[in-house]
Computed example of a mutant assay.
Amino acid sequence: MKHLLTLKELDKQTLTAIIQQGIEIKNKPERYYRACERKGLLMLFQKTSTRTNLSFQSGIQQMGGYPVTMDWNSSNFRISPIKYEARYASRNCDFIMARLKNHSDLLQLAEHSRVPVINGCCEKYHPCQALADFMTIYEVKGTFLRCDADVCGNPQ
């Protein structure tokens, strides 16, 4: 099981493979409409979001899975130790996307979860946004190699 908490845990090869897979899914969605069939995504929000909420809901549904949205403050996450809630929540879903205020809470969630945890944004990292940005760069440039002055026409 691998969590996605920052991009620091990914080497260049893994990062490139994830981005290439994302582009493949984007360009040929019909091939992936059952990729997450009957898989549940718990979307845990301690802070609000429009784009993260919609993109994760749409993505899991387009690939045959289902989202379960949970507000941190309207659940026992607010009053119970994270480790207990993480253990229970991870018995009822296949992955967790958490948009939390504190990275330390995210680390506790991941430590005690039995399923992969995705950082939907915290005060330190926003790996999903970074992946989307990298995906756009890769789609446009076809590489992550540094652009030099001769190729790009920009002074260094």
Results as ranks from 00 to 15, higher is better:
L4D: 06
I82D: 04
A110W: 04
K141V: 10
H126V: 04
V117T: 07
S58N: 10
Y125H: 15
I23T: 04
N154T: 12
G65H: 11
T69I: 14
R34S: 13
G142V: 04
K124P: 05
Q46E: 07
K8V: 02
M63N: 01
G59V: 02
L131E: 02
I82T: 00
K2F: 10
C152H: 11
F134K: 03
M70E: 08
M1G: 14
Y88L: 11
S80E: 07
N119G: 05
C36V: 08
M97N: 08
Y33N: 15
G142M: 09
V151A: 14
C122L: 07
D148F: 12
K28P: 11
K101Q: 14
K141C: 10
K28C: 12
E139L: 02
E123H: 14
K28H: 15
K12I: 07
L42W: 04
L44K: 03
P116Q: 00
N76Y: 10
P116K: 00
N53D: 10
K141P: 10
R31F: 10
Q108W: 10
N73A: 09
V115T: 05
I25W: 05
N53K: 14
L109I: 05
E30N: 14
A89E: 01
Y84H: 13
N76P: 03
W72K: 03
P29G: 01
P127D: 12
A98Q: 08
E37Y: 12
C128A: 12
C128K: 02
G59E: 11
I79S: 15
P155C: 06
M63A: 00
M63Q: 00
K12N: 10
C122Q: 06
F95C: 01
T48S: 08
F45E: 00
Q21V: 08
P29K: 03
A35R: 09
E123S: 15
G40A: 15
Y32G: 03
E85M: 03
L4P: 02
P29M: 09
S113V: 08
G64P: 06
C121W: 09
L5G: 06
L131G: 05
T52A: 06
G142S: 01
V151Y: 14
R78T: 13
I60G: 01
K83E: 13
S49Q: 01
R34Q: 15
G153K: 09
V115H: 00
E123R: 15
N119K: 02
R99G: 02
L107V: 09
F45V: 06
L109H: 03
I23N: 09
S55P: 00
I60F: 01
D148Y: 15
C122T: 08
N73Y: 08
